[in-house]
Design a protein around this nucleic acid. Structure first.
Lengths: 178, 178
DNA sequence: TCCGGCATGTAAACAGTTACATGATTAG
DNA sequence: CTAATCATGTAACTGTTTACATGCCGGA
């Protein structure tokens, strides 16, 4: 999935909100943002170096306790410019949606295949679980609906919720048709 | 996106239905299967070699016209066994869903940001277009609803349609909230 | 004291895209 | 004849994951 290094923009975007460490960035992908992109620390740390070399970020060393140091990165003006450029640019439609499970279904052609029902049920449980988790997130973070300030966050969460809800409905429909 | 070489299973799955050439396989990703996975010929041809080296496939040469030869691949018993093993195995839930557009929204926090509306409208048009195309596919390929034989194909298509419909509804909701 | 979380990095392997490269066949 | 499609391959590069590697800090 070689693209135009989307990761760099995500890093810039996150740091734009407030200065962050590599560790903070790594954690960010465990939360809602992880619903729509993922990255490991082994990809993040080198990328931070590259971005600093390009003067899109700068860092200052911080010390916790006696010895442990961390690097807190701040976005530069050039970095902000690049971020805005990315946001402004038209977004190519992502028909990436790689979904291993759906592919498996595709190869099981017979409606009466005995493997079908347990497979659908297994996925249904997984997605219902995820749906519950996301719904809970949404109601705790946005109990009164959309905020004016965290609107992007709100949109991303509602999208994730919708997506999972839709997935479960589709699975249930499929089960009913067996 | 290094995974456990899903591509090999897709190739095996497609060839399992009937013998195919590398070119046929490449084409397959332009159709509905392309909604849930993609691959270029530059990835497919080497993979076919590898699979043949592992005795999961065999090929016979065919000649069209005077000179042009193509390799038609057939799945072996070992290949079928591996395919079935994959189908049987539990599928890890795919929270891959990399979506560049949703990320952009996330970084635009202000509900009144003037960039928001045009961005949403642009995506809405793209996804509506795609939705129309998919709906048409569904009604032409399955005018009477699900078939007993092409059930997997039916499921994949309904899923793609749902996904796009859901996406457009979400975009419209977002627009109404501006 | 020990364990989980904080914190940062590198290396090797694999997956995927883009570009390079060549040639045959068919339909208009 | 000529353009689109058929047909197959390789090379270079980029992106992503897994594994290796190290050490500090705070709380139980």
């Amino acid at each position: 999935m070689a693209q135009r290094n989307i990761l760099q923009f995500i890093i810039l975007g996150l740091i734009h909100e407030r200065p962050l460490t590599g560790y903070d960035l790594t954690k960010a992908f465990d939360n809602d943002i992880g619903e729509f992109w993922s990255a490991k620390h082994s990809q993040i740390y080198p990328q931070l170096k590259t971005l600093e070399a390009k003067a899109l970020l700068t860092h200052t060393d911080e010390v916790t306790g006696e010895k442990l140091t961390r690097k807190r990165y701040t976005i530069t003006e050039t970095g902000q410019a690049l971020l805005n450029q990315w946001l402004r640019a038209p977004t190519p439609e992502s028909h990436n949606g790689k979904d291993e499970f759906v592919l498996k279904l595709y190869f099981i052609q017979q409606q009466n295949d005995p493997r079908l029902r347990p497979m659908l049920i297994e996925q249904l449980m997984l997605h219902e679980q995820r749906l519950n988790h996301l719904t809970q997130q949404l109601t705790t973070k946005f109990p009164t609906g959309a905020n004016a300030t965290d609107f992007g966050h709100f949109l991303i969460l509602t999208h994730a919720v919708r997506r999972e809800r839709d997935y479960t409905v589709w699975l249930q429909d499929a089960l009913h048709q067996l």
